[in-house]
Amino acid sequence: MVGLCTWGATTTGLCALPESTPGAAFEEANRLYERGLFAEAAQAYDRLLQQGFRSAAVLYNRGNAFFKAGQLGRSIASYREALALAPRDMEIRTNLRFARDQVRGPTLQSSAVQDAFNLLTLNEWTALAVVPFWITILLSIVSLWQPLWHPRLRPVIRTFGSLTLILATLTVAAAALRYGQRLGVVIAASAPVRNGPFEESPVLFQLSDGAEIRIIESKEHWFRIQAGSGQSGWIHRDHLTTLTG
């Protein structure tokens, strides 16, 4: 018989890498969703976010879980947060549009200009402005250092300078649109909008789950809001979730 003890070294083996904690938690949350345990899945995604694992995928999947769990407002808020991180993600845009289509009653509609600005994140707008800014400054310094090159560099400096101004203006506009107004989404099945910040104040109108509103001011547990119909009034803080950035 031939001894072959050394042979085994030639065969290859698969090396299983241990899964990272956020990846495993994400998988587990997805599994809960696939089992139809949507509320539990949403909680699992929430835990991931609380641990600092914030990504467009987690927010998007949480939006899906909220939607399947019947929490339309929370799903819209989650999709909007996901969109702020990945503004050109077609899946997020599709599901947000689909969720918005389910909202009954008045809701804030974004304009085409806002949609155009929202195609890029604020950091992407900033990066777009910063690049020509640096080029302009560097070329200007070169021009000061070598005055003989100035006539040749002047048109280039002017072009990049103009580009910097335009893009900086657009960046400021994008920042103003994003931070100049506070937005919120109704998360209650029915949210009464009152004349004043008191439970005793008469109800002006009702907002339904998922309605997006603009927040004008706040007082203790109340927000003064403007609905999509243009009407304004006071809504209790518990009926609303505010959107971040």
Partner: peptide, 27 residues
């Protein structure tokens, strides 16, 4: 599977039909 319980307001029209398709799947 509980669809959102929507409150009607004075400006709300008739309830929209159930969607013919669903949201896209998970990432």
């Amino acid at each position: 599977t509980p669809m959102p319980a929507l409150a009607m307001d004075r400006t709300a029209g008739p309830a929209p039909a159930l969607p013919t398709h669903d949201i896209l799947g998970l990432k």
